[in-house]
């Protein structure tokens, strides 16, 4: 359903992504791992349209999406979170949730949107914080809010950039559950994480990046045993 082909991204003289190709199937739960600076976040930035690729193609449901503005990609059903959480600090939790409601050509009334927001907040168990300013939330709560915010768009594909980093172990468990639940609903996931245990547990398939190229692609057990991966990543 999502296809990345021969993707290249240069920053000045630095090639961050080098001829990267992979596909993601419907309702797949894909993990992306790789050492620091290997290009994981950049890949997500390219798919979500925050960066324009230097070269290559990105196709979603058979249509090219590279070159489209971010808001258009979001509206087509690809949501994401940020490695460093980016909530709207000077807005309440509920207001944060309502921002995406502006984007979709109104699926119903404001009242319905509000109900939906509260339902999602309830699902993530942060509905008691609804009137709190986002900046007053803990790091983990902000991650949940960020996740909730993209759920407002009903995305088919959800890309999570380091969803477990800096999160309290208890909350981590919860996030696991939420992901599983949403996956069971039929959504497709791309998850980047340093937390190897979490990602090996969660994902059905793993891609390993090193210096902007894919060095391994397969089910978690195979990846664990791959020499190149051990050398590039697990070795140190």
């Amino acid at each position: 359903m999502l296809e990345v082909a021969e993707l290249v991204k240069d920053f000045g003289g630095v090639r961050a992504i080098n001829k990267l190709s992979f596909t993601v199937g419907e309702n797949e739960l894909l993990g992306i791992i790789g050492p620091n600076g290997s290009g994981k976040t950049t890949t997500i930035n390219l798919i979500s349209g925050l960066f324009k690729p230097t070269n290559g193609r990105i196709t979603f449901r058979g249509k090219r999406i590279d070159g489209l503005p971010s808001y258009e990609i979001a509206r087509r059903g690809i949501g994401r979170t940020f490695q460093v959480t980016q909530v709207f600090h000077r807005m309440s939790v509920l207001e944060n949730m309502m921002v995406p409601a502006l984007a979709v050509p109104h699926k119903g009334e404001e009242k319905d949107q509000k109900k939906k927001a509260l339902r999602i907040l309830g699902f993530l168990k942060i509905d008691h914080l609804r009137n709190e300013f986002a900046r007053n939330l803990s790091g983990g709560q902000q991650k949940l809010l960020e996740l909730g915010r993209i759920l407002m768009l009903d995305p088919d594909v959800i890309m999570l950039d380091e969803p477990f980093s800096g999160v309290h172990p208890k909350l981590k468990m919860n996030i696991h559950e939420y992901i599983k639940e949403m996956h069971a609903e039929g959504r497709t996931f791309i998850i980047i994480s340093h937390d190897l245990q979490s990602i090996f547990n969660l994902s059905q398939r793993l891609i390993v990046l090193n210096e902007g190229t894919k060095i391994c692609d397969g089910v978690p057990q195979d990846v664990k045993d791959d020499d190149r991966v051990v050398e590039a990543y697990l070795g140190d």
């Binding site: 808001y71 979001a74 940020f82 909530v87 709207f88 000077r90 984007a103």
Partner: peptide, 25 residues
């Protein structure tokens, strides 16, 4: 208003607004 929220959202975080579908142009 909705529009006001969009204004505030873009002013607080342009990228975050973009990835939830706000046309920042």
């Amino acid at each position: 208003t909705f529009v006001g929220k969009a204004l505030r959202a873009v002013s607080q975080d342009r990228d975050a607004a973009a990835i939830v579908g706000i046309n920042s142009h």
